[in-house]
């Protein structure tokens, strides 16, 4: 419905209304104003430039799992164990993040089916403190793996995070081996573990459970890497190559199996599950 956008934008009296958050969204890539409802129906992929926008945990779970899945309760963890305070208290930052998000923290788990195939899906929400991995994220990741082990089915994890949650200091770093204990258990139980890397996946998350999948799928254009680009630039003082740390670049360098459009993600996962855990009678 691009004609509509064009017409609307060409009307002078519309300019004041376009700031209405509920009606219009601006594509972060091509800056096109998109009709929000249409954008949502298009799974937060820009209708004009195909940019894959960042999405919340519930939207993602709804896109991937069949209706009627079971949303796991996020496990309780010790809150603010370090009594961390920078310019703001960590507890205040948490409160703020929770006010803007339907969930208590950045990792949600849905247990159900993908086109009829049993699967547990874990989703990291960049919208909650940059998706950062603290104890709540690590523990929820493990709970998802535990559920997959109990159900004897695949674990699909959609990653998105700037890295570890600094406000939990070393305890966030310890989530790396902790999550790895569980990916090993899935491996030993012969259960598929599939990682979907979305924009952005960096730092300690990439350097642990995001890179330990049996299959690695990336969304187009997603930033995926270990070190931040600014850190790299400051260290080596060189220009970064075109497309550096993007999904297609990682595909080229052998770190992901495939780059899959969001519209095809669900079907792709279902097909992979057929190979990995046997075909289910439809």
């Amino acid at each position: 419905m691009n004609w509509l956008t064009r017409v609307r934008n060409s009307l002078p009296f519309q300019s004041k209304r376009e700031t209405n958050d509920n009606l219009w969204v601006k594509c972060p890539n091509c800056q096109e104003m998109l009709f929000a409802k249409e954008y949502e129906e298009n799974q937060q992929v820009c209708m004009r430039c195909d940019h894959h926008g960042r999405i919340g945990a519930d939207e993602r779970l709804n896109q991937l799992l069949d209706m009627g899945y079971d949303l796991l309760e996020q496990p309780e963890v010790k809150e603010d164990p370090l009594k961390f305070k920078d310019s703001k208290k960590y507890t205040d930052r948490l409160k703020q993040a929770r006010a803007k998000n339907p969930h208590r923290d950045a990792f949600s788990v849905g247990s159900g089916q993908i086109e009829g195939r049993d699967a547990v899906v874990g989703v990291q929400d960049f919208g909650f403190m940059g998706g950062s991995m603290g104890m709540a994220v690590g523990t929820a990741f493990c709970a998802g793996a535990e559920r997959a082990l109990t159900r004897n089915c695949a674990y699909v994890v959609v990653t998105a995070a700037g890295g570890a949650r600094m406000q939990e200091g070393i305890l966030s770093l310890m989530q790396m081996p902790k999550a790895t204990v569980m990916t090993r258990r899935l491996h030993e139980a012969g259960l598929p573990y599939i990682v979907v890397l979305t924009d952005p996946t960096t730092g300690g998350v990439t350097a642990s459970y995001a890179m330990l999948g049996d299959i690695h799928i990336a969304e187009p254009g997603a930033l995926i890497g270990f070190a931040g680009q600014r850190v790299i630039q400051d260290t080596i003082r060189e220009q970064l190559p075109e497309g550096f740390q993007r999904a297609e670049y990682l595909r080229k360098h052998g770190m992901v199996d495939m780059v899959v459009h969001r519209h095809e993600l669900r079907d792709t996962l279902a097909n992979l599950l057929d190979f990995l855990q046997g075909e289910k009678a439809a």
Partner: peptide, 26 residues
């Protein structure tokens, strides 16, 4: 920390670290 550089990223710094952690646990 692990080296932050273009080549390190291209050769899979994150994967190498993840696998090394896994090797400890195994």
């Amino acid at each position: 920390g692990a080296f932050p550089g273009i080549e390190a990223e291209e050769r899979g710094q994150a994967e190498a670290i993840a696998r090394s952690t896994e090797a400890c646990l195994a």
